[in-house]
Design a protein around this nucleic acid. Structure first.
Lengths: 344, 344
DNA sequence: AGCAAGGATGAAAGCGCTCTCAAAATCTAG
DNA sequence: CTAGATTTTGAGAGCGCTTTCATCCTTGCT
């Protein structure tokens, strides 16, 4: 007889119990006699009862909702881990609220405010570069959060991610060991992007450790896109001294670089070695395959979900988790052509 | 002095007005004297007030939240339009709740239920293939929704999308006009995926219109991935009668197909013409460029947002919007090599 | 100056649920 | 069989905000 969506009191009435008991039967079944529980469940099913989330959130002070604040979904790699995050959350009855900011700290702050307003129980961020005001807001509202993709050097913030600097050093050392001495880097925009900065720094440090310099001109910075990778490579190829090894800060850029080399008739890896970061699907399919650092992005999403869920459940959590990365060597790298033989 | 997050009553007290007025000053500024409004605004700013979304939703019966139910974010093309959707919504003060189902109708139903429980004011779905129970749920809870990517032939549901069948026919006709007579199709899984089905049907219809048949063996069905495109192409190349034109149902598959051809030393487009669907960024960067149907995915996201927002605001909305698609001809297509010259 | 009309404000009743607290029902054991 | 312990249930008070309705100020006119 009731108009509109059935409410808890409708279920209770139909089951012949009080709203309080109906609530318990639905939310904490263990606290209710099986017999009563069955009556309530039946009534709920019969009426097609769906709890009113806002009312529930207001009364219980938790929304069963988690926010994710990411730079953009355009990057397949973020999309990938957000996908994993959402699925993990859904398995535990949580829903994902999404906010993207396009690498703009002001927008990020605003988006975060919006999520807090929606009453998210926790938030997943990308990277460590954030407006101090953002951290203040998080503290004021006591929102559990976790930074992902990077590790926080200060140790002030919980995080789950990779050691981007070390990973980049590893790639660089691999190239150095192959005999390369002439490096260039194609990077994403480093402003508000600690991942990119750390990776570039890693290359620089690894080179310095072997007495080599990475000059500012050797680093090309461009927005993430295939076209940027191509442009970057084109610029490098115009130079008098062409690099023999090009470290790209992610796979999108690297694939762009490969495409450009191919268009210019260069032989990869003989004329130039190229490396990426991420290990997107296409990296393996290309010919030659792209040598790249594999980042466990699905794990990342899952771990972030697990962290927050554990924290909300009052379980013990590690303040910081480093996820392992792995260098995947494929056909895009080889010793440089004109290697000065025997020079130790 | 107050502990925890400041609430509306705190703002009201500080501004020296009643909670009712504070509420109006914040939500419907026009209804309040500028002078009073300023006092409230100042107090709110000073206290760092953030409205409590659940309370607001409970009292006002709207959550300023929109849900999106998509197959997966792994597909860059969905990620793309979800990104646009989210941004459009954010501009209007709405937040996006995300649910993905991996092409499983049961999961989709469950995810939708979760979104309704969260009190979304509207939902964006992908495609027209949905459990009847889903539509029933939508009706019961009177949730505005819109189907995207496809057009609903029955006209029962509001939708914003493309005429996938017609678009596929257009691609096919283009290939036919080039002189191709020997076709194959590489498709995504068609179960619960009307887009894929419509496109395959479009190819079949266009061929039939010219007296040609698309045999079941000529259609290869695989999950979406670069690897699938490669596998599909590999299988086609093994055949005695190799197709001269391969219509791929999306760009991911098409790129995979191109990669495989290249690996096999085939010349595209001389030995085989390949077409895609979507016009992802990489389609243009590849050499040869991929001939493909460009779908305005960003527009799609924006239009879906606009539709729902208009509807919620009580504005007039078109029950169905067809977005224009465009055939982008690049280097992956050409007349077949062994064209029977002059045969009309 | 006096009064109607309209605009701004305040009081208070919920929105639908959870959860504390107390009462009732059930169980345990002497 | 009954006192006491324990489990199950119900009553009712909010959670923080919006929104009707009534009240109080302003204005504009006569």
């Amino acid at each position: 007889m009731s108009k509109g969506a059935p409410k808890l009191s409708d279920v209770a009435r139909m089951a012949g119990v009080s709203p309080a008991t109906a609530s318990r039967a639905l939310s904490t079944p263990a606290q209710v006699r099986p017999e009563t529980r069955a009556k309530v469940d039946d009534a709920a099913r019969l009426l097609g009862y769906v709890p009113h989330g806002a009312a529930r959130a207001l009364a219980s002070q938790r929304s069963r909702t988690i926010g994710a604040v990411i730079p953009t979904l355009d990057n397949a790699i973020f999309a990938n881990s957000v996908n994993a995050l959402q699925r993990s959350l859904a398995e535990s009855g949580y829903t994902l609220l999404l906010g993207s900011h396009g690498y703009d700290p002001a927008v990020e702050l605003e988006v975060t405010r919006a999520l807090i307003e929606r009453g998210v129980d926790g938030i997943v961020f990308v990277g460590t570069d954030h407006d101090p005001q953002l951290y203040r807001m998080l503290a004021t509202f006591r929102i559990p959060y976790v930074l992902t993709w990077s590790l926080d050097p200060s140790g002030h913030h919980p995080c789950i991610g990779f050691n981007n600097r070390e990973a980049a050093m590893q790639v660089t050392r691999f190239l150095l060991d192959l005999g390369h001495r002439n490096f260039a880097v194609i990077s994403g925009l480093t402003a508000h992007n600690d991942r990119a900065r750390d990776r570039v720094a890693g290359v620089r440090d690894a080179l310095r450790a072997r007495g080599l310099d990475l000059t500012p001109q050797a680093v090309i910075e461009r927005p993430y896109s295939f076209a940027s990778g191509q442009e970057g490579m084109r610029e490098l190829l115009k130079r008098a001294l062409r690099p023999s090894a090009v470290v790209c800060i992610n796979d999108v850029l690297a694939v762009g670089a490969i495409i450009e080399c191919r268009a210019e008739g260069l032989d990869i890896p003989r004329d130039v070695s190229i490396t990426g970061f991420d290990d997107m699907e296409i990296a393996a399919q290309l010919a030659p395959g792209l040598t790249t650092m594999r980042l466990p992005t699905v794990d990342l999403g899952r771990s972030a979900a697990a962290y927050l869920l554990d924290r909300l459940a009052g379980r013990e959590v590690a303040p910081s988790t480093e996820l392992p990365v792995q260098l995947v060597v494929r056909g895009s790298t080889a010793p440089p052509r004109s290697r000065s033989a025997g020079r130790k």
